[in-house]
Design a protein around this nucleic acid. Structure first.
Length: 492
RNA sequence: GGCGUUUUGGCCGAGUGGCUAGGCAGAGGUCUGCAAAACCUCGUACAGCGGUUCGAAUCCGCUAGACGCCUCCA
């Protein structure tokens, strides 16, 4: 029996604006798609937060026993800068600036993306498709939408006819807009565009002469519109209707709105059952963004090379900092907040390291079953990592009280306690125990220190003490070897 | 201007119509040769103004601030 059968998971659905009981299309299986990065620069911490939020979702779904297919794309083409820019591809633009091949830019930043997410201990998705690898699929969708009369071709570009779509469907269903408002409010902004209406979005863009990334199509050489790739790749790997679609809050409109429209026309169905949106990471009172320069890179945190932080912070402390907030809340990034989080993280890890010091007894005075239940309930309530962590600190308190023998625990309960802590701290939250990783270095330092103290004893001809140090270390499996150059040691 | 979100104690951050997370910082205490850690206790916060209610920080309205989207964006 899998855990999902006894745990009622609730997910906040952006589409209904309410928490709903999660029920997958196919029992025991979950299809999840998350909009990935555009690989034209290093991922900043704000990007990382979103991917970490969905990493938490992925991890918890797996913990509940679901078989999860997690698809996250790499946008390596087709990202329109803006309409006035004659559709110059964002990646091509950067490539020209740096005088290198577009795919070289893509490669460089894809590697950076993977390295960064690995450092912060995100699990890799099940499938990570690229936009350039799915040009054919995208062209097929465009043909289909054209054939159904919901798009039109002009000068080698194809646009989705939003107004026509809106006659029978609601364009704006996800973001809570209606097209009429939007017409009134964008009229002044747009100049002469080849689009029929400013609201229309590109499915295919004609490539100008200088444009490097281009593919042949029935409408001439060009490249696909940004919104299309997600529709193509999500439905290709997860089916026409799948369970979860995630992304940053800032993608809700127009990106996700457009995805819904494309799928509704092509497949005549609402593609996604649960829309999840992760909230923004705020720096200096505003969201982190590449375009405004208001951002910090993960590596700048890990090395401490930046003007914002007083010191370096480990990936784990950084991850803990983010996990302390709920994924749907705006989170403020600051030195004080990170410092506080780091201390909390260390407190948690220190407690886990002390688990072995607990002596089990016959009966338990702490209610491990209830506590475990509260941990699951926190996560079942729309992945509330914040409340989960509060419960974990309750567990820290238990550990300390048990060591001080102010509480007691049975062997069976202790095993469950230990398993549950490990499950939530390492498997679900995805934290790593940095303190443990440093342990071997510290052990070396410790033995060096004893060698020094033993030398002092020997210099004082305190043979009793020096022999005691050597013998007791030997019992621990640490052998001291006195040589001409001083004392060395080996650990068995 | 439109749409949406939000405003919690010194800081970060959960949450609920009445039993009022958690972390960090702070105060007092226990323990300790000293210290640290740990444990116990404490501050009694929910933008402002109205309303609904036996009762609201939690529901509704208004006001103010902040943020996000409306253009590429995690």
């Amino acid at each position: 029996m899998e855990l999902y059968e006894t745990n009622q998971l609730k997910i906040y659905n952006s589409l209904s604006k309410s928490k709903e009981i999660f029920k997958p299309v196919v029992e025991g299986n979950v299809g999840m798609y998350v909009c990935g990065p555009t690989v034209y620069s290093n991922v900043h911490l704000g990007n990382v937060r979103t991917f970490m939020s969905f990493d938490l979702v992925f991890r918890y779904l797996k913990q509940l026993g679901y078989k999860v297919r997690y698809v996250r794309n790499i946008t390596d083409a087709g990202h329109l800068e803006n309409d006035a820019d004659e559709g110059e591809d964002r990646i091509a633009k950067k490539a020209r600036l740096e005088k290198i091949e577009p795919m070289e830019v893509v490669q460089r930043y894809t590697v950076d993306f993977h390295e960064t997410l690995q450092k912060i201990n995100n699990l890799p998705p099940s499938i990570e498709p690229t936009a350039t690898g799915h040009i054919v699929e995208q062209i097929e969708i465009i043909k289909d939408i054209l054939q159904k009369g919901m798009a039109y071709e002009i000068n080698g570009s194809v646009y989705f006819d939003v107004l026509k779509y809106n006659e029978t469907e609601h364009y704006g269903i996800l973001s809570g807009r209606n097209i009429e408002d939007s017409i009134h409010n964008t009229r002044e902004l747009d100049g002469q565009s080849e689009k029929k209406n400013p609201q229309d979005f590109a499915l295919w863009k004609r490539a100008e002469e200088k444009h490097i990334m281009r593919w042949p199509s029935p409408w001439g050489e060009g490249f696909p519109g940004w919104h299309l790739e997600c529709t193509a790749m999500s439905t290709k790997y997860l089916g026409e209707i799948f369970d979860i679609h995630g992304g940053g809050m800032d993608l809700k409109f127009p990106h996700h709105e457009c995805e819904i429209a494309q799928s509704k026309v092509k497949n005549k169905v609402n593609p996604v059952n649960y829309w999840m949106h992760a909230n923004m990471l705020i720096l200096n009172g505003q969201k982190m963004a590449k375009s405004t320069g208001n951002y910090i890179l993960p590596n700048e945190i890990f090395t401490g090379e930046n003007n914002i932080l007083s010191k370096a912070f480990s990936p784990s402390a950084t991850r803990f900092f983010m996990m302390q907030a709920h994924y749907r809340s705006v989170l403020d990034f600051s030195n004080d907040a990170l410092e506080a989080a780091e201390k909390g993280y260390i407190k948690l890890m220190e407690a886990l390291n002390k688990l072995d010091n607990i002596e089990v007894g016959k009966v338990s005075s702490v209610n491990i079953g209830d506590w475990k239940q509260r941990c699951y309930e926190a996560m079942n309530d729309d992945f509330n990592s914040s409340v989960l962590i509060a419960n974990l600190f309750e567990g820290v308190k238990y550990i300390n009280l048990l060591i001080e023998k102010k509480e007691t625990i049975s062997a069976a309960d202790f095993k469950e306690f230990q398993n549950t802590l490990n499950t939530f701290v390492f498997d679900v939250l995805g934290l790593k125990n940095d303190l443990e990783q440093n342990a071997s270095e510290k052990l070396n330092g410790l033995v060096e220190m004893l060698i020094k103290m033993r030398k002092e004893a020997r210099d004082n001809r305190d043979w009793a003490l020096s022999d005691k140090i050597r013998d007791e270390l030997a019992v621990l499996g640490i052998q001291l070897k006195d040589g001409k150059e001083g004392t060395t040691f080996s650990i068995n």
